[in-house]
Design a protein around this nucleic acid. Sequence first.
DNA 1: TATCTATGCAACAAAATGTTCTATAAGTGC
DNA 2: GCACTTATAGAACATTTTGTTGCATAGATA
Lengths: 191, 191
Amino acid sequence: MTIPDDPRFIATRNLALDAAFKIFHSESVLAVTHASVSKETGISRSTLYRHWPEVAQLRKDAMLRAARPPVIAPRTNGPLKADLNWMLGLLMAALNETPWGKIAPQMIATAAIDVDAKSAINGFMEDRRKDVMSVFEAAEKRGELVSDAPIENLIEMAIAVPYHRKLISGLPLDYAWLDEHVEVLCRLALR
Amino acid sequence: MTIPDDPRFIATRNLALDAAFKIFHSESVLAVTHASVSKETGISRSTLYRHWPEVAQLRKDAMLRAARPPVIAPRTNGPLKADLNWMLGLLMAALNETPWGKIAPQMIATAAIDVDAKSAINGFMEDRRKDVMSVFEAAEKRGELVSDAPIENLIEMAIAVPYHRKLISGLPLDYAWLDEHVEVLCRLALR
DNA sequence: TATCTATGCAACAAAATGTTCTATAAGTGC
DNA sequence: GCACTTATAGAACATTTTGTTGCATAGATA
């Protein structure tokens, strides 16, 4: 669908997607329909059908809008342990306290059957990988990294565990756990 | 809902749930409806409504039926590296080659909003935790474990990474990766 | 055999979903 | 400002999906 640059069209689209996102994260992706978005926004149903002939497309667009997770600014001052704590602490907070944590499971399920959702998720995971990577690289430059454990595996472990905990095993993500997690990572990286 | 022990009722229920599971894993949980199961099985719609007045209940039952993942038999002969390779190799195969791997994302999404799905997932994750636990405990008995890294964290890392890889980051789960993963785990456990 | 009950089927009701048309108002080019 | 284009609102309508009910039938039970 080509998107006209008519300001009315753009305004309607933004209004609709904001509402769709709101419905998505306060209820579920299933609750996002032409009818519910119409009710939420006052936009007429026929207009919404003009913008999104298929409800699946509307839901996906709402998801892609949702897929702008909080920006995480890593610190690389050192020491490694402090930097990891900072960076993973921000990730933890994002998972615990922003809509992202609530939406992520549904995005993952959608990613399993939809290419766009998958690439959105992958893009986000890639960003997180780079964040952690920059932390480890800074540590290496400082000469802190003495282990020969592959950095890729360290990065994967650093990120996988909090995600698994939050999204799959349902265990709590808190600072007590985070401290231990970082401790084990440093044990791997620094010895 | 109390389940009558009338064989007709039981037969209908099993037939319906088998079909629901099939639809679930070949299409998606959304494709499971009274109508689609009726079409698939020949069971009349009214009968299906009698069994499951709510479609959500039907979907959940289909999921709980699906939630019998392949049984994984851990080996504990040692050495640790071989045991981990075996155990995690089975887990990997299950994620790659059985319906479980395909269904898991949708179960996770459902678990985020449904208590029963959540406890099904948690039950399965707990089984996996025990599997890995038994491997590490056997290694400890043999005196292999010399690290003071907390076993709980090792277990979490062992499992979280393959799940994250398969379900979230979308990276491939293969033996090349598995070898490295196990290598890093052993580095943590054995030094 | 007599009784109970799950099922199939058809008819129906209600709600959700999708389509089309027209009047109107907002934006665009001159 | 004026003519033209286009997006929207709203209503009317068709279609599909979803949910309900009554009754005849056949399988289960005792």
